[in-house]
Amino acid sequence: MALKGNLRDFSTTQLLNLINLAKKTGTLVVEGPNQAAQLAFRNGKLIYGQLAQEDGNLTSILHKAGKLNDEQARVLRERAARSTDKELGLLLINAGYVSQTDILLSIRAHVLDIVYRLITWVEGLFRFEQGVMPSEDRITVPIELENVIIEGARRMREWERLVEELPSLDMALKFTEHPNVNIRDMKLSVEEWRVVSFINPKNSMKAIAKQNNLTDLEIRRIVYGLLQAGLVEVIRPEGAPRPLPFGLSPRKPSPPTPAEKTAARGLVNRLIARIRSL
């Protein structure tokens, strides 16, 4: 069993959705044409990220976040080159340079920066290495993926992909029965909330877009985000033709008689018996 492919065919946003819903633990390795990145997950939460061409150590992260000035970063690189991130973190907290919150927020921002960059890659070989975790000395920060996915959809530029994902705006939406998060905890924009408020098996996406003055592109982008975050499902609008039992032509307006129903059932049972005997 493998979980690998190319971002051309299966995007970062889709991968995040998969990892989130399947609550996966392991490392996603992506090799793009010019750069490579790794993201680590525990039980479906993003915990760590690293770009191949960056050292990704704590000094650099805090420097980038403006928590250490150039001079401090230079000194630490010289003197603390051998300490692990965890040791260094303790040292800096004890010396009063930064707080624990500074460290956690800076790492979080660093990891989010990597994941948002990865979301813009349109090409790159990926593989998911089940169970592989960052080395023990790294500091990890768990980040819920739903908001990351919604943000990813907002940044999506590929119109064709959205059309492929959501070919028909005549379909309706409904909330998934067991979402991983409560929708109230999501950081949605005003427009997204308005779309959410119209979600109902009776309203087609087209109707929702019309109510909210959204273009086809805008409604698709919003729905795509909600869909990938596992909050909604696409369904046939209520009132559309119901599946017909076999043997009844769609033109026939009257409901099947009990005799017709029995005959149709009998036929299917004969098919079942025959296939079992093959």
Partner: peptide, 23 residues
């Protein structure tokens, strides 16, 4: 593998039967 293919066809037939029961 024929057995695997049979399973798929049978599952489809079970769904067809279930659909008849509900409609």
């Amino acid at each position: 593998e024929r057995e695997k293919v049979k399973t798929v066809l049978l599952e489809l037939l079970y769904s067809i039967l279930a659909e008849m029961e509900t409609s």
